[in-house]
């Protein structure tokens, strides 16, 4: 079974009528600069607990997501307002003194020191792709999967 989209894409490529714009190519190359060597990935999970305890609140522009990897959980709340994004969250269990958290977008990385309860926050990010990286002293970094936030 060939999905029509691949067929149509192959026809478009063969016709050469709609080449990829150079800025799309440049953005793809720039992605490599976001590489976090040796990072483990925390994947998003469906989580009934965070839905029922505080709700996803998609209606007021807030959205909660949980990311999990062995030994570390990220609860991340993303809020969209005035075209910009605020990210607040908590890394559990508390990852220890000296832990830094990067909130990454393709254009901007904000680094914060984690609070004693594991909480962190970053404000005024552009909409689009977002990921959070936790750097614990003496451990490999842990990075959440990339999620897309619409304005």
């Amino acid at each position: 079974m060939i999905n029509d989209e691949y067929f149509l894409a192959a026809l478009r490529l063969a016709a050469g009528n709609d080449p990829m714009p150079s800025h799309v190519s440049a953005a793809a190359r720039d992605v490599y600069g976001l590489r976090v060597p040796q990072a483990r990935t925390a994947d998003p999970v469906e989580c009934a607990a965070i839905r029922t305890s505080s709700g996803t609140r998609d209606d007021d522009g807030s959205h909660l997501m949980r990311f999990v990897t062995t030994g570390l959980t990220f609860d991340v709340e993303m809020t969209v307002g005035d075209g910009l994004i605020d990210v607040a969250g908590q890394v559990l269990p508390y990852p220890g003194e000296g832990t830094l958290v990067d909130v990454k977008t393709p254009h901007l990385t904000l680094t914060t020191r984690i609070a004693h309860n594991g909480q962190f926050a970053a404000t005024g990010l552009p909409p689009g792709w977002v990921s959070v990286v936790c750097h614990r002293p003496g451990h490999a970094p842990v990075q959440t999967g990339w999620v897309r936030i619409r304005p």
Partner: peptide, 19 residues
Amino acid sequence: WDELESRFGPLMWAVARAC
């Protein structure tokens, strides 16, 4: 990475547009 982008970027663009 740049070479991967040259090789596959155009087809990814075509798939997105074909969708």
